[in-house]
């Protein structure tokens, strides 16, 4: 019995050590982990909505977008002072070596989060611009069918895009999330013409781009 008790105590102690290793984050590391967790929860809640699995709620999306905004851009950068990385952190030192790139991704996250708040009003369908019917013609004949078609056509990448010779067009859903300079960023008003799920996917690609370069592990 004593032996079992001792083993049990050792096991409990080891569990405690493991738990401490995960929870050992303090100070700024703790702050950014909490920020990342808040964004993770928002992404978790929005993903089913963006796939049409649960009803779309524009207000919820706008609130979520506000959470993302509050952790992006300069707010995020302020939580990454250059310092030795503690064991509890997932950050990679490359983050400071390529600070401009990290800052650009952080700015991109901020911009897309703001865009999500704008596009939230559109739901899962981009608004279809309709040409005014020409006088004296049937209203259907006056509609811009090419624009309508674009919304439903399955996306397909070109040979050059597939082979990596040219970057994916920004209009395609699989936008690269690799925008490194501010001039590449789409102007704000365009978000009003985008479906919310398209903007949401850009946010996820920005997250993935940053994680692949600057975060250890999955």
């Amino acid at each position: 019995m004593i032996r079992n008790g001792t083993l049990g105590a050792i096991a409990l102690t080891m569990l405690g050590v493991v738990a401490a290793a995960h929870n050992g984050a303090t100070g700024v590391v703790m702050e950014r982990m909490m920020g990342m967790s808040a964004m993770r929860d928002v992404m978790r809640d929005l993903a089913p909505m963006m796939q049409g699995q649960v009803p779309f709620d524009g207000i919820t999306v706008q609130e979520a977008a506000a959470v993302l905004q509050s952790h992006a851009g300069d707010q995020m950068l302020a939580l990454f002072p250059e310092e030795p990385i503690p064991a509890s952190s997932f950050a990679k030192p490359e983050l400071w070596q390529k600070w401009d790139r990290f800052a650009a991704l952080s700015a991109e996250l901020k911009l897309y989060s703001e865009g999500l708040a704008v596009a939230a009003a559109n739901g899962l369908e981009a608004p279809v611009p309709m040409a005014a019917p020409e006088a004296g013609t049937d209203s259907m004949a006056g509609m811009d069918h090419s624009t309508m078609k674009m919304a439903t056509e399955p996306e397909k990448f070109s040979v050059a895009e597939l082979m990596g010779v040219s970057k994916r067009a920004a209009a395609a859903t699989g936008q690269s999330g690799e925008l490194a300079v501010a001039s590449d960023l789409p102007a704000g008003p365009q978000f009003a013409a985008m479906a919310a799920d398209d903007v949401f996917e850009r946010i996820s690609q920005t997250c993935a781009s940053c994680h692949s370069q600057f975060r250890n592990g999955n």
């Binding site: 964004m39 929860d41 978790r44 997250c207 993935a208 994680h211 692949s212 975060r215 999955n218």
Partner: peptide, 22 residues
């Protein structure tokens, strides 16, 4: 596999992020 977003809301990091992206 399209977006990198996992069921818990986290987004793939490391080489899996590259697998999705590229």
């Amino acid at each position: 596999l399209r977006t990198g977003v996992m069921p818990d809301g986290d987004v793939f990091g490391g080489s899996m992020a590259e697998v999705v992206q590229a």
